[in-house]
Design a protein around this nucleic acid. Structure first.
Lengths: 230, 230
DNA sequence: TTGCAATATGATCTTAATTCATTTTTACTG
DNA sequence: CAGTAAAAATGAATTAAGATCATATTGCAA
């Protein structure tokens, strides 16, 4: 700890406690994690933990909160470069799956937080913030008219995150690493079920090329006055 | 307890303990549940619990095991009357969603069991048995040739159960009861993404077409000031 | 350097899981 | 039906871990 100000020292210690707690919770589960071990790992005395967090449950809350915050930031970054809704969905799915896979033991824990009768309002608001990344992608696509006759947003959201969490569990259980086919297929589901206009599904694919050509013609025509940069 | 034989008495007492445990775990969560309260609720002395189960964790395991067994039986019954794969999927989704909704506080708990380092092999095998109902529907459909070029079974399975669990959580969170549109839309996703639309994926180089479409989307997005008609 | 407020410590307290010596019930025998 | 040995049940005592708090240490300003 080579911090100058007191504030920095305190912040660093808080970080150390959260890091230790994250590790110990991941290794031993919530019940198995001993506060004394967390304290030891963080290089502070047992009582110090209770200076920063009221009890074990609040410590877990803090670790979970930090987890969601980081995840949210990462998700925004992952999506930012992509143009179309489907590309964004694909990028988000890729990011989400690889992120939770990288932290599986901890992710298993987070569902626990929900159980605590009180105080999960924090938790919920963090999750809300996180899934807003997805919601915005879809909302924009709907505004743009990309989705014809879409189901309620929450159903698409639950389909997306529910599928990915379960896939992550399966991959983890089978000692597999990231599987890009899972992401591709999920994106494809979105494409076929929600994005693809009803005609794409009903009429035959043979006309796909014709459709594309027709659309290119339309775009080209629309572009003639204007110019597109690289 | 008006049982005649000793065996029946013991079985009845075991049932009573499991019932009490199920209730108390649901009400208070795993940590909050006191074994003494469970014992009281079951009408036995504290020590008696430990005659039937080695510790609290094993008691939870037993409750969870019974939960999965009942769920499996119910799922088989729910599917048995239906003829086509899509009807069976719809019936299973309906059954699964309403079942876990009816027992949400407990369902939240079950994910915990996975955390315990040891002994979840039981748990996993129960879950495997349960999801076999789904797997068989899909396998038969594949054999029958209903699915052309399907994704791996586990991905469809995780999509199915993951979506439903998340939908259940959302409904529960919003104090909603069963929502049949959620089931309908999930079934529709299966129909459009896996069952129908065989040509789309098989014939035309799907990836190439997708890439072109994605690029068109990007171009179209870049044109946002100008609107392109259909 | 001194004094004081902010921090940190870990022995102590408390609560709840688990054990086990004792009691009660059951089932069998003469 | 009494006697009795095994099985089942009990709850006081033990143990483990979370939480508290009186005391000690540190950082900072005058």
């Amino acid at each position: 700890m080579a911090q100058s100000t007191q504030r920095e020292k305190v912040a660093a210690k808080e970080e150390a406690i959260l890091d230790a707690a994250h590790a110990v919770f991941s290794e031993s589960g919530v019940d198995g994690a001993k506060v004394s071990v967390i304290a030891q790992r963080a290089g502070v005395a047992l009582g110090t933990i209770y200076l920063y967090y009221k009890n074990k449950a609040e410590l877990l809350d803090a670790v979970v909160a930090r987890f969601w915050q980081r995840l949210t930031q990462g998700a925004r970054d992952a999506v930012s470069g992509k143009a179309t809704a489907l590309e964004q969905i694909d990028a988000l799915a890729h990011y989400h799956l690889s992120s939770i896979l990288a932290d599986m033991p901890f992710v298993g824990l987070t569902s626990i937080v929900r159980i605590q009768p009180q105080a999960d309002s924090h938790h919920i608001s963090h999750v809300r913030e996180y899934v807003r990344v997805f919601d915005q992608i879809i909302s924009r696509a709907i505004d743009r008219g990309d989705l014809t006759n879409p189901p309620p947003l929450w159903q698409m959201r639950d389909l997306f995150y529910g599928s990915l969490e379960y896939m992550a569990r399966t991959l983890d259980l089978n000692q597999k690493t990231f599987d890009s086919s899972a992401v591709t297929n999920l994106t494809r589901v979105f494409q076929h079920s929600f994005f693809g206009a009803s005609e794409v599904r009903t009429t035959v694919s043979a006309s796909a090329a014709d459709q594309i050509l027709a659309r290119l013609d339309r775009i080209e025509a629309a572009l003639t006055p204007k110019r597109i940069g690289t």
